[in-house]
Each structure stands twice: as structure tokens, then as C-alpha cells.
């Protein structure tokens, strides 16, 4: 049921092993305990409604984790808290042993190595596919550096590589706004890859995709795990079943169950609130 992380799909992803993250001067997280993301006791209320209620979650280095849960379970709010969009009322979020994410802004968190894909595909519609990837590329993103930035051969090669991974080589000069829904989803995943993140937070990657596209996305995400830690929020149970080794079930802003797909499906509480049996 679960696929080994070494498997490479027809998309042919081969990450070049780089000792150092090529991105930036941002500090690297300390991963000595093999946990890359600590979400501990996080609570967030919106007008009295507890979107997150004492949520605790630990993501291991290199793992592929699926997060499922009914609407309003707090999945997107959880991502908002991790990426700095929303400040929680209580609790803590740590990136590795040393980086406190609650003190950082969205761009700082992105620079530190946490990439995010939105539920609705969000790309730059007026820019070409190539330019979308160029903008996402990990580099010094301060204003003056960017004003005079030029692509070097290595960076160009990297963009071509990602274009191949996401299957948009023929669309490189096309406006991103003109892509199909599925292609936009892929481009956004490509933009995530260009950031060279340690953690990928992926919100509903296969929403609106054809079965073939879904399959390729599954292969891609599985192949990314290992070098990256991947957290996928998804509604599509078949998709989750095809990629997941460990599943976290959220309910009312809290972790209801955690384990393999079989374990959580047989959990009586999960059956009651989510799987509707």
C-alpha cells in the first residue's frame, strides 16, 4: 500500500544531492532529533470559534505525512500558523530544534525553508511559466540584489530541470494565467521545488485534477519525500491511500488519531466523525 521513498515515477525526479542548502543566508534548522517541525499545544480562536484546539503535531525529517479531516477541522489554519500568516493564541511552533517560527514573518519562514502550496492554485498569471519558476527560485531576495539579479547557468539548468519534473517544458514561455487548472497546480508545485524547501506544505494538490494528473501528482509527492518533508492536506481518500504511510486525522482543531491508513480507518472515533460509518 505504501510506496518506498526511493521509487521514482515516470516524472523522473532526481534531486541532485547538495550538501548545503543553496538558498540563502537564512539559518538552517537543527535537525539533530530527526524532527523537523514541532507544533505544540497550538490554539487559535476566531470570534470564539476554536479553529485549532490544543493541536500538537510532529513531522519527522523526510517523512510524507497526510493530514485529513472534515471541513472546519483546522487543516488550513494549521498551515496558516506554520507559515506565519496567522499568529496562534497559545502554543509554540518550532522548525527543528532552534528556530521559533512564531517570531518570523511569512517571507522569513519561506526563506528558512518552508514552502507552501495553496488550496486554490496561486501562480503569477501575467508572467510566463519560466518567470514564475525564476521568481520562486531560492536566492538572496533582498530588494537591491533582485534589482540587479541575473540568472547564471546553474540556475537556468535548475529551472529547466524543474520544468521537466512538472511536465511544462513546452509551456515555458506561455503565460501562467493561460494554463489549465491541473497545469497551474503543477506549476505551483514547481515553484515550491524552486524554493528548495526542507518542508513542503501542500494543500489539496489534486483538487480538480483528472485521474491521470492525480496519479502523476502522487508519484511526484512520493518521490519528493526523503529529501524533503512533505505534509499533504487532502480530501481525496483514494489519493491519500495511494501515497500515505502515516496519516493524521484532525477534528475540531485537535488530533483525533494518527497512524497508518489502516489503523486510522479502523479507529472507532475516526469512523464516527469522519468516515461516517
Amino acid at each position: 500500500m505504501s510506496t518506498s521513498p526511493a521509487v521514482t515515477g515516470p516524472v523522473g525526479l532526481r534531486m541532485k544531492p547538495t550538501g548545503k542548502r543553496r538558498s540563502t543566508n537564512a539559518p538552517s534548522p537543527d535537525l539533530s532529533h530527526n524532527i523537523i517541525l514541532y507544533v505544540e499545544g497550538v490554539t487559535k480562536s476566531f470570534d470564539g470559534f476554536k479553529a485549532l484546539n490544543d493541536l500538537s503535531l510532529y513531522i519527522e525529517t523526510g517523512e510524507l505525512r497526510c493530514v485529513i479531516g472534515p471541513n472546519g477541522a483546522g487543516k488550513t489554519t494549521m498551515m496558516d500558523v506554520i507559515t506565519g500568516k496567522t499568529q496562534p493564541d497559545t502554543g509554540s511552533v518550532w522548525f527543528g530544534q532552534t528556530i521559533d517560527l512564531l517570531g518570523l514573518s511569512e517571507p522569513e519562514i519561506a526563506q528558512a525553508g518552508i514552502g507552501r502550496k495553496f488550496q486554490k492554485p496561486t501562480v503569477f498569471p501575467e508572467h510566463s511559466v519560466f518567470e514564475n519558476l525564476e521568481l520562486a527560485m531560492a536566492c538572496d531576495k533582498s530588494v537591491w540584489k533582485i534589482l540587479f539579479a541575473k540568472l547564471n547557468a546553474v540556475q537556468r539548468e535548475r529551472i529547466d530541470e524543474v520544468l521537466g519534473i512538472i511536465g511544462l517544458k513546452d509551456q515555458r514561455t506561455a503565460k501562467a494565467g493561460a494554463l489549465s487548472h491541473g497545469q497551474k497546480q503543477w506549476l505551483e508545485i514547481g515553484m515550491l521545488l524552486m524554493q528548495d524547501p526542507l518542508v513542503l506544505l501542500v494543500d489539496e494538490p489534486v483538487a480538480g485534477m483528472t485521474p491521470q494528473e492525480t496519479e502523476r501528482t502522487a508519484e511526484l509527492l512520493v518521490s519528493l519525500a526523503g529529501k524533503h518533508s512533505v505534509v499533504v492536506v487532502e480530501h481525496d481518500m483514494n489519493f491519500v491511500r495511494s501515497i500515505a504511510r502515516k496519516v493524521t486525522v484532525l477534528h475540531e482543531g485537535h488530533v483525533l488519531a494518527e497512524g497508518t491508513m489502516d489503523e486510522v480507518q479502523n479507529d472507532p472515533q475516526v469512523k464516527r466523525v469522519y468516515l461516517g460509518e
Binding site: 540563502t24 507559515t83 500568516k85 514573518s105 511569512e106 517571507p107 519561506a110 526563506q111 514552502g115 507552501r116 495553496f118 496561486t122 501562480v123 503569477f124 521568481l135 520562486a136 531560492a138 531576495k141 533582498s142 530588494v143 533582485i146 515553484m191 524554493q195
Partner: peptide, 9 residues
């Protein structure tokens, strides 16, 4: 939002 989340201030 996208600009912010790919690391631009």
C-alpha cells in the same frame, strides 16, 4: 500572498 510565501519581503 504568493510573493510573500516564496520569500519576498
Amino acid at each position: 500572498g504568493r510573493t510573500r510565501f516564496i520569500g519576498y519581503q
